[in-house]
């Protein structure tokens, strides 16, 4: 099981700030995003596109990062601090 968190515009598009998801064996962030999009009936490009950043356990990662049980995954839309 992993915890998946959504922020800002992604949170509004998904309609949730976080969910829990099972992962099967070695699954990447990108594969998980595809499954979540299908399960929550969100267009895949909302969770998988070149403008998004991903984080696992508060560190920036690429979409091919391999997840493990207990990870906290975050989908970060384009940042706009400062």
């Amino acid at each position: 099981m992993v915890r998946v968190r959504f922020f800002a515009s992604i949170k509004e598009k998904v309609g949730k700030s976080e969910i829990e998801a099972y992962i099967s064996g070695s699954e990447t962030v990108g594969v998980l995003m595809g499954r979540i999009a299908d399960e929550y009936e969100v267009k895949r490009e909302v969770l998988i596109n070149d403008t998004l950043l991903y984080a696992v356990n508060h560190n920036h990662v690429k979409s091919d990062y391999l997840l493990k049980d207990g990870d906290e995954v975050a989908v970060l839309p384009p940042l706009s601090g400062g």
């Binding site: 950043l53 920036h60 970060l76 839309p77 940042l79 706009s80 601090g81 400062g82």
Partner: peptide, 24 residues
């Protein structure tokens, strides 16, 4: 570097609506 890496998001409230800022 803060603008590129730190997970902070800005929503603008203008006279015509509210928008998440998604550019630099």
């Amino acid at each position: 570097t803060l603008k590129k890496n730190i997970p902070i998001w800005k929503k603008e409230f203008s006279t015509t609506g509210k928008y998440w800022v998604e550019d630099h």
